[in-house]
């Protein structure tokens, strides 16, 4: 009887490696969940800027989440953000390439969903009412539509630099990691993007 009394507390207070591992994994999963929850809507809008299609944008975001979690979850959390946007941009480019190839090969098929120029659905149609009503909302929708159109007209690297630096708020080093280029290249692409946008929006804005 005394033996059981002696052994019981030890058994109850023992914390083996499995328990410690599960706690760490749980914390890690929570941190990852929080990160993804923070970036998912912005990532969706970034993808929608490039693809002009809700379903394609959602697919690209989901794929980016899965790849980040599978391949980079063990990396320091500070690296998740640029890595996630790198994966996202690669996904957007892949879809754009597939569309271009499909357009070349099967251009005779009607496909308004995949028409990247002109007839695709306006992303603002899928957006809920953000608050302001009437004319203000309309002006905002027009402004974002104009910005999207100008961003699409930019060279791909300038567009990426502008979106990551300004819209997503990544710093130069993070943007360079996301774009897989030097920080100097980021500054150059970004400066040219701002110059080009200002030349076209300056009068309006």
């Amino acid at each position: 009887m005394a033996r059981f009394v002696t052994l019981a507390p030890a058994a109850m207070t023992w914390e083996g490696p499995t328990t410690g591992f599960e706690d760490a994994a749980l914390d890690h999963a929570k941190e990852l969940d929080k990160f993804l929850a923070d970036v998912e809507r912005r990532a969706f809008r970034i993808a929608q800027f490039g693809l002009r299609d809700v379903d394609d944008a959602l697919d690209v975001v989901q794929d980016a989440m899965l790849k980040l979690v599978r391949h980079y979850a063990a990396r320091p959390s500070a690296e998740w953000r640029p890595l996630f946007y790198r994966i996202l941009q690669n996904g957007v480019r892949d879809v754009q390439r597939r569309r271009a190839l499909r357009k070349r090969l099967m251009g005779w098929l009607p496909g308004p969903k995949h028409d990247a120029e002109g007839t695709a659905r306006d992303p603002m149609e899928d957006a809920a009412d953000p608050g302001p009503d009437g004319p203000q909302r309309l002006m905002q929708a027009e402004a974002i539509e104009r910005l999207e159109a100008l961003l699409r007209a930019l060279p791909a690297r300038q567009r990426e630099a502008f979106m990551l630096r300004n819209l997503e708020g990544l710093d130069v080093a993070e943007t360079a990691l996301a774009m897989r280029c030097s920080e100097g290249s980021v500054k150059t692409h970004y400066s040219r993007a701002v110059h080009s946008l200002r030349a076209q929006l300056g009068e309006v804005w």
Binding site: R41, R42, F44, R45, P123, M124, D126, A127, A128, D129, P130, Q140, A143, I144, L147, N166, L167, G169, V194, L197, R198, L201, G202, W205
Partner: peptide
Amino acid sequence: DLETRSRALFDASVAAVD
């Protein structure tokens, strides 16, 4: 101004995701 306004527009469109 351009950077500030474009950022604000983008944030508004993110908030408006349905």
